[in-house]
Design a binder for these strands. Structure first.
Length: 972
RNA sequence: GCCCUGGUGGUGAAAUUGGUAGACACGCAGGACUUAAAAUCCUGUUGCCAGCAAUGGCAGUGCGGGUUCAAGUCCCGCCUGGGGCACCA
């Protein structure tokens, strides 16, 4: 016998049980149905291309940019879109204010992770990159951004990197004129050489190189090109890299730990390799000065300043006692010249082998070997330890001719200044420690200020034992010393920078190929007439050939070196290195202005219209990399006449990180029992209530944050996630709940604390998600993600919906006049949001919306006069929601094109104010007064007040302070 | 070591020029509606003290001083979280 089956025609019960979040679908259909609304408007926006913009120059422009992402395989987590949401709100707001807003998005798609993944799995980087981009695009679209995707760029697209290569050629064909402080074409440098040689423009790569016009003309063509290479902004030079013999490849700094490769632990050594470099050091002063014109945070500017590291002082030449060679040093304290007791060279300094005496050879060699073994980390960790070796050689003091011993030590860096110092132990702590260690007598040049135990580093007081500088203060003494050095022809004033030229070669596959071909080891840019390559081979782009293997090429070359028929051209061999990750990102903001231009990287008319990025939003991690390179490229392109502005990013906004909130549960291994956190603190009580908390060691296990509601664990979901705990016991607390602990840390897959925006959007909608991310706090601070808190914002939107729509489909707004209070709520909100959006204070905008809706709901506002403008100001934050209501008001165009309403002061002025009245600074009562009431009348009224009289205790106040519109204070 | 930032309820935070500290939310507690749940609404929620209660008092923005009629906000000295740089001559 069988039971009759009951068939439900409605999907109700099924929906109910299937809903993973326990939300009932039925109520949602009746109420604010975000899912339906969001799908509908996403499609409508796409069909009507509402985000596609033109270069119509009749409108004022606004360029709002996000740092484009590297599309990693992990996809977006909830922290990534924070900055994008902020910039999207700003962009939409600006558009409503009448601007033509450029708000694009693209992908920084070249890079090591894709290549690493290819090495491990054999999947071609272009395949994984394309897949990741598609996924990113879907996740971004899900959130409802107003990006104009028709302008998107991808750095690994040949149509894009064609122009990256073209810009490289411009940098190769340019030099930096120090007198004019700008980049100029190399052709102009050649004319200078032909007329006057290089007397007025020394070579940055070889300051001592001198030739006149006649010598220049007599140089061979090859020689001339060698000379030009010492000037080019993109140039070829020998630079040290980490070389790992076992892996047969070059490694990045952070892939080498303690002189061993991070992967495999193979030994690595510093090795000189011929590499492309960018002469960013020539731009140091411009990069420093330009910061003054930028609206960036002081911290960000400071980071760039310290990276550029300008210091002023003098260059001094020291003659040697027994040699023709001279040692050049840089010092910031030329005034201490007479306190020099010894000199120190970097162990790698080129003069070391030449001047070391026979007796000291062994000691010097031993010390050099010791330094070579030392990793950067070891050197950094043992800063205080004094090491070094004596070369046996002596220099002569430039004025006193006193012999000065010459040492080598690792505390002098080869890469900074001249790689040599004059050591003044009386005035420098490190020199002092060194002198003590090697028992070098110390000359006191500071009189009683130096008492022998520590260096006197202060820049005050008078000099002594310093010949012609005696009795002088530091400042004048510096000038006097430099003048004397210049008069004697053995020194000059000099500015020094910490900034180093940037390595531009990578021995990798997944990057832009160089548009360079070598003839007899001489590099030629594609398109140079001298190269004589057939047209089809010399035009850009030089496309990245397909490879089957990503193994390094021979002798540390990149994988491209393995592809013989690509490398070999009729005119010579191609460059096999590729460009670094920052190449494509150094100019992408320019391409967005004119993304489909086939003839130029960007049309001058387009860049003249769009100009600088008005607001650039991104993380602080790019403070000195990307942001410095992009500034330099912009300056070079501007100097060469391709742009009319030389700073790319006018205002910079740094968003904070959204951290993960990891959850832990307590586990007793022996008893295989999980114990609710709430029981751990009060084991006795739990025992008393019949529960037995097992004694023994408690292990804290990470649990996926998505299985936890607040701190309450979903046990069934946990068991499904970790079947090995299927049979474990769970000790619940008195409420029958199982609770976890939480710890805030970085959001990452391995910590099981990643929250995917897709899940949040599915559960609450994109509008709720957008508003919640903003509501979390100020954009620039880091804060943990808390899914629980999103309820508040979601409730707000539902409440807002009920102000417009009742019972599913009844439209509430009517043409009835609004009360003064309703208008005040509205205009206060317009003012607050407009002002706060301008200063990127979005969290307080959301609060203001909530306040406004609370007030309007309480007043049961139905007035169209209030409710319609409200939709417009809400649109930047909750675009789908606002678009739906906007159209229900009978509009046929997007709310994006509605004008942002203006607030009117008349609605904001209140005619009376409830003043706090304080006695001796402590608020005791509140009394209402008309705002235009006379101070004397207010004073009289206050003194009659019952509460005030009580606190005065019969005394007469000494002073009555009345601040109009603020407060009243009585001083007794 | 140097530079830049921050420190406010159980939690995220607000207070934009020195003027009622804790807006707006989350969470929690209690209540209404409901057969029940969801949803929604209402009340309370910095701590301590007094009171049946309305309420009142005191303390309170990392710590210690100071300026001021008035300090989260300004000044001086510490403690501490986060980020950056680091033998830079």
């Amino acid at each position: 016998m069988s039971c009759p089956t009951i068939f439900y025609p409605s999907a109700k019960p099924i929906l109910y049980f299937c809903s993973p979040f326990g939300l009932d679908a039925e109520a949602n259909i009746m109420e604010y149905n975000f899912n339906e609304i969001e799908q509908k408007w996403k499609k409508w926006w796409k069909d009507n291309s509402v985000y596609t913009i033109t270069n119509d120059t009749s409108k004022p422009k606004c360029y709002v940019l996000d740092m484009f992402p590297y599309p990693s395989g992990a996809g977006l987590h909830v922290g990534h879109p924070l900055g994008y949401i902020a910039s999207d709100i700003y962009a939409r707001y600006k558009r409503q204010c009448g601007f033509q807003v450029l708000h694009p998005m693209g992908f920084d798609a070249f890079g090591l992770p894709a290549e690493q993944y290819a090495l491990e799995t054999g999947q071609h980087p272009s395949v994984t990159t394309e897949k990741n981009i598609k996924r990113y695009r879907e996740q971004l679209d899900n959130i409802g951004f107003s990006f104009d995707w028709s302008r998107s760029v991808t750095t690994s697209d040949p149509e894009y990197y064609r122009w990256t290569q073209w810009i490289f050629v411009q940098l190769f064909e340019a030099w930096f004129d120090r007198t004019k402080q700008k980049a100029r074409p190399v052709t102009e440098l050649i004319s200078i050489f032909e007329q006057e040689g290089n007397a007025n423009c020394p070579a940055p790569s070889d300051e001592r190189l001198r030739f006149d016009a006649q010598q220049w003309r007599q140089f061979s063509l090859e020689m001339q090109r060698d000379v030009l290479m010492k000037y080019r902004i993109a140039y070829l030079d020998y630079a040290e890299v980490w070389w790992c013999e076992a892996l047969g490849t070059v490694l990045a700094n952070d892939e080498v730990i303690n002189g061993q490769s991070e992967r495999g632990g193979h030994p690595c050594v510093r090795k000189k390799m011929r590499q492309w470099m960018l002469r960013i050091t020539e731009f140091a002063e411009r990069l420093l000065q330009g910061l003054e014109t930028l609206d960036w945070t002081e911290g960000m500017k400071e980071m760039q300043r310290s990276w550029i590291g300008k210091s002023t002082g003098a260059e001094v030449q020291f003659a040697l006692a027994n040699s023709e060679e001279i040692i050049e040093v840089f010092t910031t304290r030329p005034d201490t010249l007479f306190g020099v007791d010894f000199m120190v060279l970097a162990p790698e300094h080129e003069l070391v082998p030449k001047l070391t005496t026979k007796e000291q050879e062994a000691a010097v060699a031993e010390y050099q070997a010791y330094v070579e073994r030392r990793s950067e980390r070891e050197r950094m960790a043992e800063v205080k330890q004094v090491t070094g070796a004596f070369t046996g050689a002596y220099a002569l003091h430039p004025f006193s001719k006193k012999p000065i011993p010459i040492y080598i030590s690792e505390y002098v860096l080869a890469g900074y200044g001249t790689g040599a110092i004059m050591a003044v132990p009386a005035g420098d702590e490190r020199d002092h420690a060194f002198a003590r260690h090697f028992q070098i007598p110390i000359t006191n040049i500071f009189g009683s200020n130096y008492e022998g135990s520590a260096a006197y580093t202060d820049k005050s007081g008078l000099l002594s034992a310093s010949d012609f500088l005696n009795g002088m203060e530091v400042g004048p003494a510096m000038d006097a010393a430099i003048e004397a050095l210049e008069a004697a022809g053995i020194g000059r004033r000099r500015v020094n920078y910490k900034l180093r030229d940037a390595g531009f070669s990578r021995q990798r596959y997944w990057g832009e190929p160089f548009p360079i071909v070598y003839q007899n080891d001489q590099p030629f840019a594609l398109g140079e007439p001298a190269l004589n390559l057939p047209e089809e081979l010399s035009s850009l782009p030089v496309t990245l050939p397909h490879v089957e293997s990503y193994r390094p090429g021979p002798e540390g070359q990149g994988p491209l070196a393995n592809i013989e028929d690509w490398v070999e051209t009729p005119a010579g061999r191609r460059e096999t290195n590729t460009m670094p990750g920052y190449a494509g990102s150094s100019w992408y903001f320019l391409r967005y202005m004119d993304p489909h231009n086939q003839a130029q990287f960007v049309d001058k008319a387009a860049s003249d219209y769009w100009q600088q990025v008005d607001v650039y939003v991104g993380g602080t991690e790019h403070a000195v990399g990307h942001l410095l390179y992009a500034r330099m490229w912009t300056k070079a392109l501007a100097d060469l006449g391709f742009l009319s502005f030389d700073e790319p990013f006018k205002k910079l906004v740094n968003q904070g990180m959204i951290q993960g909130s990891s959850r832990y549960i307590a586990w007793n291994r022996e008893a295989n029992t999980f114990i609710s956190q709430s029981l751990l603190g009060k084991a006795q009580q739990a025992a008393g209530s019949g529960l037995e908390v097992p004694s023994g060691v408690i292990t804290e296990l990470r649990v996926d944050v998505n299985l936890v509601d607040g701190v309450e664990l979903n046990i069934e979901a946990f068991k499904a996630w970790r079947p090995e705990y299927q049979t474990a016991q769970f000790l619940l607390d008195e409420q029958g709940k199982f609770t976890c602990t939480s710890v805030v840390e970085k959001m990452s897959k391995s910590k099981y604390n990643v929250v995917n925006p897709d899940d949040i959007v599915a559960q609450y909608g994109a509008d709720t998600f957008r508003m919640y991310e903003m509501f979390l706090g100020p954009i620039e601070v880091s804060k943990p993600w808390d899914t629980q808190g999103i309820e508040g914002v979601h409730r707000f939107l539902k409440k807002l919906w009920r102000l417009y729509v009742a019972d599913g489909d009844t439209w509430l707004p009517e043409d009835e006049p609004a009360t003064e209070q309703m208008l005040r709520s509205l205009h206060k909100t317009i003012k607050k949001t407009a002002e706060d959006i301008e200063r990127f204070g979005f969290n307080t905008c959301v609060s203001q919306f909530m306040i406004c809706i609370n007030e309007l709901s309480a007043a049961q506002c139905k007035s169209r006069e209030v409710l319609e403008p409200l939709v417009v100001i809400l649109a930047p934050f909750a675009p789908h929601f606002a678009e739906e209501l906007w159209h229900r008001f009978g509009h046929y165009t997007s709310v994006l094109d509605a004008a942002f309403p203006r607030w009117e002061e008349q609605y904001l002025v209140e005619n009376s104010k409830l003043y706090p009245v304080a006695i001796n600074g402590k608020t005791r009562t509140e009394i209402a007064f008309a705002l235009d009431a006379a101070p004397s009348a207010i004073e009289a009224a206050v003194l009659q007040d019952e509460v005030v009289l009580k606190w005065l205790e019969g005394k007469t106040p000494k002073k009555v302070i009345y601040v109009k519109g603020r407060m009243i204070n009585l001083v007794v």
